[in-house]
Each structure stands twice: as C-alpha cells, then as structure tokens.
Design a binder for these strands. Sequence first.
DNA 1: TCTGGGGTCCTAGGACCC
DNA 2: TCTGGGGTCCTAGGACCC
Length: 423
Amino acid sequence: MFGLVDCNNFYCSCERVFNPALRTSPVVVLSNNDGCVIARSNEAKALGIEMGAPFYKVKAFLERNKVAVFSSNYTLYGDMSRRVMMLLAGFTPALTQYSIDEAFIDLSGFGKGEALRSYGRRIVSTIGRGTGIPVTLGIAPTKTLAKVAAKYGKRYKGYGGVCLIDTEDRRVKALKGLPVADVWGIGRRTVGKLEYHGVRTAWDFTQRSEGWVRRELTVTGVRTWRELQGESCIDIEELPEKKSICTSRSFPDRGLSQLAPLEEAVAHFASSCSRKLKEQDSCCRAVTVFAYTSRFRTDAPCSAINRTVTLTVPTNDLRELVSVSVGALRSQWDASATFFYKKAGVIVWDICPSGEVQGDLFDTIDRAKQARLAAAIDAINRKNGYNTVKVAVQGTDTSWRMKHEHESGKYTTNIDDIIKVKA
DNA sequence: TCTGGGGTCCTAGGACCC
DNA sequence: TCTGGGGTCCTAGGACCC
C-alpha cells in the first residue's frame, strides 16, 4: 500500500503557523514579483479567488474582503517542508518526496483496514502537532489511487485527514464521484479530448479499452489507466539526478531594456546553476541563455534571445559558467533596437556526474588551478553565505530584483526574525 | 503599470549510418 | 519506366506535474 501525504494549502498554512490570528480567515500567497495568486486558504477559495489570478486584477477584491496577502517566502516554506518530511520519515521505511508539500510513503506491512487507518491518523496528528501544518493522507494500492484518496480526504472533514481506498467497493465509488480532470496525469488538454468522447468521470475513463486509451493518450495515458484499475506501475523510487537545471526570473514593471542589468541578472542565474550542479555533484556540457519580452503586451516590440553554447569539457565552475552565459547574451545583443525584456534565465543540461568528466586533448583551461580557486570560493561561501564571494559582473544593481512587498519573516532560519511572545 | 518558477516524459520528423 | 531495408540519435514541441 502507498500513502500520499499532502500538506493542506501549504504556503498559506506556513504563514498561519506564525500568524495564528489568521487561522480562520482568508489567506493568499503570491508568486514571485507579487505577480499571481499561487496559494489560497479554504476561506479564500470559498470567496471564489482563482488559482493563478493576476494580483493587480484581484487586489481591490482582496482588500474589500479582508484577505491577508503574503509574498512568497521560499526560505520559510523550504524549512517547514524539511520539518514535515523529517517527522514523516519516522513512520515508513521508504519515503519519496514528490514536491515541496507532498511525499509518497510505503505503508506495506502496517496492517490493513482499521489498523492502517489508525496508523494514518497517528501520522497526521504527529505532523500537525510537531509543525503546525495540517496534512491529508491518502492510502491505496497505487500512487494514482492514493492521490484520489487524498482528494477525498480533503473533501470530507469526517475522515479526520485520512482516506483509505482498500476495497473494490471503495475504488468504484471513489472513481464514480471524481471528475476525470482531477486525476493525476490528466491535464487540461487531455480533458478536452476525453470530454469530447463522453468521458466525464475517472470511472468512465477506466471503462474504455486499453487500446483506445493507447491510441488517444499514448503510453502515459495507459499507465494512468492501469493505476486507476489498481495495478501499480508508476515508479518514483528515489529522486534521480536532474537532467537539466534552470534558474530564471521575471523582472518587475516593464522589464529590462539595458544590457548591463540584464548581464548582472544572467550572471546571477549562472551562479545559481553552478551551485545547484554542485549540490548534486554534477557537471554540465551545455548552457542555454534566454531572454524574452512580455507575451501579454501588444504595444511594444517583441524579441526573444535564445542561445546555446556547448562546452568541450563538462563543468560546474562558477566563473566559467558565468563567463559563458554572459558571453552568450552579449553575442546576441542588438544595440540598435530597444526591447523591454520581461524574463530571462539560464539552463544547464547535458549533465554528467563530476567523477565522470571526460577531458579534452586541446583544453585551454588549467583545470587544477580552476578547481583550487573554486574550492576556496565555495569554502568562504559555505561559511559566510551564498554570494559572499561572487564574480564582478554579478554587480550590485538591484533594478532586476523581485518585488516582494508583503513578505513575512524568515521565522525559522534567521535569528532576528524569531517571533516575539508578549511577556 | 501589473500575468511565477522549475522540472519530466513522450512523439514525430530529420539526419545519419551500413 | 524503374530508385531498398533497417536501424540509431538528436531536437523541437507538446503535455503534464507541483
């Protein structure tokens, strides 16, 4: 049996832990740059605020309804997530973190029926008491059905946060009550196609033949179809190394029209990619730099920069990645026209383990020297904080940095932000 | 004025091989 | 007049996830 543990309205719940007065009032959390609504408490959902709604369009409505608004605070959410996962790990021999607020756990061997349900309730209450984050647990013989169970666990308060799909009866009933759009792996495009063919619920979907599903939705659709029948076939055992790593940001207001701040931003993105590569002990052989103007604006000229550079020797070196990325940007820069770039980023790919780097006969870089300097920089940054030592082109300009006007404190990771309790 | 960030997997089609 | 057969690898684009 698999369990899916899902934190309820995770980002909103994190904010509430440190603002208990908001426990029963509507709360939303915004994306970077305070752009869209990306998390809503149940009360906010009930007000009809849509996922992904642009903040500027709903701002007045939120104020009128006294909705608490927060900029996203990933330092806080990341740390709260770590706490939830640590507690959870004590309940299972195998845990796979699937996202910042979800994890699959192996529940085979923890009994069945009532015994399993009560074990589940212990998990839910332990995490609730230990972190302040409310979670829901879905339990079923496949991961896709566990996701279904978690949906029901959230829908019905009476389940006490745990929903079990452990009999054929329950499976059929659950699938019949579930719109096919709510099935894990069935996205917007597929829903359109399925509805056209008269498939409305998850149950309707399982009643089609495997051949039909393969023809219409290819092999990924078949996997989902089998999982819904109770046949486990989606493996997410442990997180493999990433095959590509991307750091990108949107820029506030109109965007950037000058090369210098864009260079600084790209240098920062490259630096972040270097750090992420080092975290998984990998090197990359290809670097892509991109930048584009707003896709929502029709009153300004469009431009899209996209350049990929292939390296002869894979690397994760900070200076090399920054230099390659900034160089790629400069090579594409057209000084004769003015564009407002709204978003840019760096992607590193063609990734291999650091220990398997293939050298090059005609290499022009002194790798040993480069490695010694990188080790020294990394040691300083580990001790004093990321970007204490950086490459000069990263600069000190702040015009490209994100807007976050409603950010809460870094309550769990910054000593100055620890909450004060009145004497 | 203002619209997030970071991934994976699959398929079709082209280039290339013998 | 007539123009093979069987592969692999790469890439772009689409669909999905949170």
